[in-house]
């Protein structure tokens, strides 16, 4: 199994990569920076973990740099995890168009372009592949300051459902993992008070366990999930 994952230097991307590598899968991981934790993982899995430094704000060079030069068209890809994202949080009346466009490039346009080329690679190799987009509970439950961010994830959910319908016929699946708030850098800009209020809105009243999210991603990528497509799978401590 060869899986392409974005945003592997920390948080959920790192945990998911670890989990897939433990399973013996090969991980093609992309991130802007190399953290100490990522470096350790690279040393631990020198053959199975391939790393590329790439800024996902650049959707233009994806085909050439990621698919032709790095992975190579001869390599089948069985899974894609669109994990990398940026959070531009503010109330709507402060909305800055440049920040919004930048966030849409990283959170929406690049994942869509990656999906395009991954499906093309799956067609070339006749691979029954699985695509997992990381979405957010903010799409389904409103939070002050997250409307712009939530809108990018809502776009991904719609994209995923329609991708599933379009490509199911050739065996390609697409699902969204709707994650609740985890203790990762993505939510580091929130104050403790804000975080506590968010956790109080969940059934389990605590942050979502990153490992639980990572294991669910692994499940959705695997053949065990071969009847699941076009779904939003919530791993959110029961935000109801």
């Amino acid at each position: 199994m060869n899986v392409l994952i974005t945003g592997i230097s920390k948080g959920l991307g790192l945990k998911t990569s670890e989990s897939l590598l433990r399973n013996g899968w090969t991980v093609y991981g992309i991130s802007r920076s190399k953290t100490e934790e990522l470096n350790e993982l690279l040393l631990q899995y020198p053959d199975k973990l391939k790393w590329l430094q790439y800024d996902l704000g650049d959707a233009e060079k994806i085909r050439q740099i990621i698919f032709k030069d790095w992975i190579g068209l001869d390599t089948p890809i069985h899974g894609l995890v669109n994990n990398a994202a940026m959070a531009y949080d503010d109330i709507v009346t402060n909305l800055n168009l440049d920040s919004l466009e930048k966030m849409y490039r990283v959170n929406v346009f690049t994942p869509m372009m990656l999906t395009k080329f991954v499906i093309r690679q799956m067609l070339l190799h006749h691979t029954k592949g699985s695509i997992v987009h990381i979405s957010s509970i903010s799409v389904h439950t409103g939070y002050k300051g997250l409307s712009m961010y939530a809108s990018t994830k809502g776009a991904l959910e719609a994209f995923s459902k329609n991708t599933a319908r379009e490509w199911g016929e050739v065996g390609v699946r697409s699902n969204c993992l709707v994650a609740g708030f985890m203790e990762t850098e993505m939510s580091s800009s929130l104050s403790d008070n804000q975080k506590n209020r968010i956790y109080q809105r969940t059934s389990l009243k605590k942050p979502v366990d990153v490992n639980s999210v990572a294991e669910t991603i692994k499940f959705l990528l695997s053949d065990k999930a071969n009847s699941i497509t076009g779904q939003n799978i919530h791993v959110d401590n029961g935000t109801i």
């Binding site: 499906i119 093309r120 690679q121 067609l123 070339l124 490509w167 016929e169 050739v170």
Partner: peptide, 10 residues
């Protein structure tokens, strides 16, 4: 359309 997609890729 799906066949044409595969044709393009090949």
């Amino acid at each position: 359309s799906l066949d044409l997609a595969e044709l393009t890729v090949r």
